[in-house]
Nucleic acid binder design. Structure first.
Lengths: 147, 147
DNA sequence: AAGGTAAACGTGTAATTACACATATTACTA
DNA sequence: TAGTAATATGTGTAATTACACGTTTACCTT
């Protein structure tokens, strides 16, 4: 490939899996976090809380896998939520283990944030279009399964 | 919606635009950056350099819009690349303006990183599947257009 | 039981991201 | 032209991300 050819460069930009996914993630995250502005949590924290709710008692490493997040990244994200009493991080029988669970307070935060999530979600789906979004979501699930 | 219902919670997780996009972006970025490990730049910097090449002389704000990146985010990303002589940040006739351009050195870095990009891109497309990827990419472009 | 291997996790460091706020410069308007 | 609005950008702060490296604990093999 010849980078001095502008057509080649544009093709790379418009097809790059990393760039296009990151850009879309940035744009959607911005939308969500603006809607979440007056909430007690970010959209990212909302996802972590929801996963902790669904997989109560799961190990840190397992939760990281579910979230497609590096273990150490999740560790730091959870520390913030633990400090704010939204999750508990308990030692398992195996003393290396960290068992993650959402707290009552975390559930309460989730519940009162849910309407904001619904609004942000509807906003984005409305702009993208239901049909287009369905196809997109299928692809995102495939990525999560395969990578 | 009732969060005490597990089915509801799982539905939220598997449909959330923000979570699913961010997770896919994380996974793909991890792949790319592992392939880029011995390169002089990250996958994100690769994208910024490529856009700076394509839009040579563009203003910071305009480039940020192209990249779907907050202006201040791009400002800091560009500072790193300027310090390493990969882009130039020049004042325009309007002294508020910052005109961004890739340098000769930046082009050289791009050229020798291109094979790594090609490998990472092929890896991801192979795992996701060409057909699935095409549909996904269309959706990502729609997101970038509409948000 | 000792020694080596594997598993689970934390810390140091640095890049990435963006909001709130502030500054500088230009354009517009009364 | 003085004052105001709009534009373009930078800085403070904090969350998010992940690699490299190190520690602790459990398991396994002899």
């Amino acid at each position: 490939m010849d980078l001095s050819d502008k057509k080649t460069r544009r093709e790379i930009g418009s097809s790059c899996a990393c760039f296009n996914l990151r850009r879309a993630a940035r744009l959607v995250t911005q939308r969500f976090d603006r809607v979440f502005r007056d909430a007690d949590i970010t959209a990212n924290q909302f996802s972590i809380l929801m996963a902790s709710y669904n997989q109560g008692g799961i190990l840190l490493t397992g939760l990281a896998r579910t979230l497609g997040m590096e273990r150490t990244t999740l560790s730091r994200n959870l520390s913030l939520l633990e400090r704010r009493k939204m999750v508990s991080i308990a030692m398992g029988g195996d003393r290396r283990e960290r068992r993650i669970a959402i707290t009552k307070n975390g559930i309460a935060v989730l519940e009162r944030t849910l309407p904001l999530w619904q609004k942000a979600q509807n906003d984005v789906l409305g702009l993208v279009g239901q049909k287009e979004w369905k196809a997109l979501l299928r692809g995102l699930h495939k990525v999560a399964r395969e990578l």
